Every structure is written in structure tokens, then in C-alpha cells.
Amino acid sequence: MRIRRDGMIWAAIALLAAAPPSLAWAQSPWSVPSDLSVEQRTIIFGNRGATLSGTLYLPREKRPRGAVIALHGAQVPLRSDPLYRHLIDILPRLGWGLFIYDRRGSGESTSGGAAPGNFELLAEDAVAAFARLRREPGLDPDRIGFWGLSQGGWLTMLAAAKEQRAAFAVAVSAPMAAADVQMNFAVANILRIRGQPQSVIDRAVRARTAVDDYARGLRSRSEADAAEADVAGEPWYDQLWLKGNIDDPEWPRQIRADPLRSLRGSRVPTLLIFGQSDPWVPVGASLAALRSSAAELSQVTVKIIDGADHAMMLGIPPLQQVDTGFATRAAPNAPAYFALLGAWLQSMNPGDKATEKSGEKDAHIGK
């Protein structure tokens, strides 16, 4: 197995991210019309009591096109969130359709009465979107797959395990660890970046671990309550992502979710992309876990984007990276990520002979 770090590759593809495909061309005397026409269709579908609304961006060409279904990060539930703009800009230019819908309970999508944070249900929503797109005119039902970043990456792997007809899955910044392990790693970094000493970090992680152990059935409620009470009065308590976990019915289910189990249960070609400088995800531990399971993951390709953070951004100060307010405005800007995403998707496109040689076959986990 080889896990390579990608630098600037295929810069021509990367530059596509800077040019939205449907800009009005007559903005100046020297402008020319675009050579790309993109149709937007509103698609509404249902699943488990919810009505979900989304937009399909589709290049206007006669031959059927493949499509990418975007799954949501925890802080970005709307199709209009900046995180998804690069997909709108890049994918139609490369001949792919893109479907983005408002997550259940957000925007124009109803909740169906479900509690937020149910990973299984959110993945089932993506599978329902997949089934709906297979019937959509202009799409090739055999070339539809999933993309997601952060929590969306977790959901991408889970959706691919549930829907083995998917053509591919792309999971960006998705930890190969349980949610509690990932959050303990993130909280330690949040406190470290904000100048807290190691003694505070250790105390915070101990409190979180006690609550997580209760959720796993390993400690009593009184022990968990006491551990949270020990830190609840501290000025850094709000940075721990701990409040409400004890009584959250979804938290025990989330921490039992195993992304490696989803990968092992899938035969869908899957691209895992990590940022080299991600304070939210234990990338080193994730790579080690993937290596230990290499024999079972022949369908998985792993890439690391040099210098990129959790949102595939370059040049963002660490304090901003761990600011949840910034998360809603984050949008990828790493050229290597754009290039890699475009090249790998084109390698999944058997109808495009010109791009068949672009597949990074030497990076598969099982080799």
C-alpha cells in the first residue's frame, strides 16, 4: 500500500474552480459567451416521513451524464452553503451532474419528526436521493455516486455500504474513528490552539471521556454528571462540545458508528481525502487504521492534500479553523484538492476515453 501526498497536479483542472459555468457573458465588450450550458432542476423526493428538496445541476448534452450526490457536513445543511459552491463550479464543467438537497429539517426540507444527528437516517436519505436520480432523464443510472465532507464523509461511506449500486463514493476529511474519539482529539486541539495548558486539556478530555463512557454503558449516570459538573463552571467549558451529550439519544448511536465497518461492507470504489493540517480529525490514527485493514479495502484510494485543513482550505489561521462560526462560511481553496477530485471522478467515467489514463491505480489501499 502507498499513501501519497499530492502537490500541484493537473493545474488546468484546478483552475476550473475559479470560473462559475453560468456567468453572464456580456459583462464587458471583450467577453465571449460560455461554451457550457447548465440546466438547473428542482427535485423533490421523500424518505421516512420527510419531504426533501434539492437542485440538480446538469450540463445540457444529449448523452446521459453521471451525477454526484452531495452529503452534508454537520454545520452546513443547506444547498446554498458556501462549502458546496466548488462542486457547482467544477462538476458540470467536467460533464458531471450535481445534486444538492437541503438536509432534513433544514431549508425547504421537512424533518419528518426525526431527531437531528441520526446517521443511519441521514444516509438513508442519500440512498433515497440515489433511487430518485436513477429515474431522472439525462442521467446515467450506472454512474451516480456520493460525495461528502466531514460528517458528510461519514455519511458517504455509510450510504455506499447501503447502496452497492453506487458508482463511487468520495469522503473528504472523514475520520476513521468513532465520534467520541474524533471529538476528544478535536477538543484537545481547540484548547491547545486557544492557549490552554496541558493540565486543562487533560482535565477536559477526562470529563468528556466519562460522559462518553456513560453513553457506552461503561459508567453510571452519577459518575457522568459529576465529571461534567467538575468542568461546567470553567471559562473554557463551552469549547468542549460536551453540553447536552448526556441526554442526547443520538450520541450513543453516533459513537458506536464505525466508518471502517462501513468501508469493509462496501465494494463501491471509494476515494478518501485528508488534509495534512486538520485539527478536527486524527489523520495519523486514521491512516494507521486504514493500513491495518488494507487487505479488506481493495476498493479504497487514500490521498493527503499538502497544507490543507479540515475544509480543504489553505492559509487559514488555526484560530479560525476551530471557530464554528467560520465553519458555515468555509469553502475549499486548495488547488490540489480540486485537481484530484476532478481527475479521480473522470477515472470513474468509462465513457470518456480521454480520461481513462488519469486513474491513480497505484494508490489503492490493497496494493
Rank of each mutant, 00 (worst) to 15 (best):
I3F: 11
R5T: 15
R5G: 09
G7C: 02
A12S: 14
A18C: 08
S28M: 07
S34C: 02
S37D: 10
S37P: 01
V38I: 14
I43E: 05
F45W: 10
G46S: 15
G49M: 09
T51F: 00
S53C: 13
S53N: 12
Y57F: 15
L58M: 07
K62W: 01
G66R: 03
L71S: 08
R79Y: 05
D81C: 13
I88W: 03
L91W: 08
L91R: 08
P92Y: 05
L98Q: 04
I100K: 06
Y101P: 09
D102Y: 08
S106H: 15
S109H: 01
G113F: 03
G113S: 04
N118Q: 09
V127S: 06
A128S: 14
R135L: 15
P141Q: 01
R143A: 10
G153C: 11
W154D: 02
L155R: 04
L158N: 10
A161K: 11
E163D: 14
A171Q: 03
A171I: 09
V172S: 12
V172C: 10
A174P: 09
D180M: 02
A186N: 08
P197I: 00
I201N: 06
R203P: 04
D212H: 11
Y214Q: 07
D225K: 12
V231L: 02
Q239D: 15
L240T: 06
W241K: 01
K243L: 08
G244Q: 05
W251C: 05
L263N: 09
P269F: 05
D278C: 10
L287E: 11
A288C: 01
S293L: 08
A294Q: 14
S298D: 13
S298I: 00
K303G: 03
I304P: 01
G307N: 06
D323G: 09
G325T: 09
R329T: 13
N333K: 05
P335A: 01
A336G: 04
T355D: 00
K357Y: 02
K357R: 14
S358L: 15
S358F: 12
S358C: 00
E360Y: 13
K367Y: 03
